[in-house]
Amino acid sequence: MEFPSMATDRLDLVQIEMKHAEALFANFSNPKVVAYYGMEVMTDLAQAERLVSQFEDMQRGKRGLRWGIVVRKENRFVGTIGLNQLSKGMRRAEIGFEIHPEFWQTGITSEALQAVLRYAFEELNLHRMGAVTFLDNVASIGLLKKHGFQEEGILRGYLFQNGHSHDARVFSLLDSEYPSSKESAV
């Protein structure tokens, strides 16, 4: 299967390759980026290279897709967004994303999220998109709600990071709640 690269007004959503390992490392070695990611801060480039391989394995195994977010104007890889726990048979997945702090509050993550949701609901024909956040990840919670996700509840001790278990909020968006481009064009 060919990787489904996409373009938006400002972004190219591309397949993550080894050439992106340094940019991934710049993100995942930043404590601000991983504070709500559910993983430890990366300490060497080899960890980012392994992450690239994990993304490739996930795609090959049809368990998910992860796009690199490239700001076209600067030709800069600034983060990732993707479908985790993808189950085409069950018509569901979970969305996950992270972006370099220099690009926080610029609308880039929202733009990428909109493109991935469109792909998931219109191309993959998914019924449910889930999302899991740390309880106090205000930025991600706001972004999910802005795109129509509804909070379903708290998952106790669901995330493990920095030697501790953390409760998490779970959100979902169903295809019937997603505003398709067909409807908005009418």
Rank of each mutant, 00 (worst) to 15 (best):
V132G: 03
N162P: 04
H164V: 15
A139P: 13
A168M: 05
V132T: 11
I154K: 09
S165I: 05
V132M: 12
L155H: 00
G148H: 00
K146T: 12
Q161H: 07
R156V: 05
G148V: 02
R156S: 13
H164Y: 14
G153H: 11
H147S: 01
S165T: 05
K146L: 12
L159D: 05
F134K: 00
K145W: 02
N162E: 15
K146R: 15
E152W: 10
F134N: 00
H164M: 14
Q150M: 09
V170C: 14
F149D: 04
V132A: 00
L155D: 02
L159E: 12
Y158W: 11
F149Y: 08
R169H: 15
G142P: 10
L144T: 04
E151V: 00
Q150S: 10
Y158K: 13
H164F: 14
R156L: 12
R169W: 12
I154S: 10
G163L: 03
K145H: 00
G148T: 05
H147R: 00
V170D: 05
L135P: 06
K146S: 09
D136S: 10
L155W: 02
V138E: 14
G157I: 07
H166A: 07
Q150F: 03
Q161W: 04
H147P: 06
A139C: 06
V132K: 08
G163I: 00
E152Q: 15
A168Y: 01
G157H: 11
Y158T: 03
G148R: 01
G163M: 04
N137S: 05
N137M: 01
G163F: 03
S165Q: 10
S165M: 07
I154V: 15
S140A: 11
R156E: 12
L144A: 08
D167G: 08
D167Y: 08
N137K: 01
K146D: 11
K146W: 11
D167R: 05
G142H: 11
Y158A: 15
H166L: 03
Q150I: 07
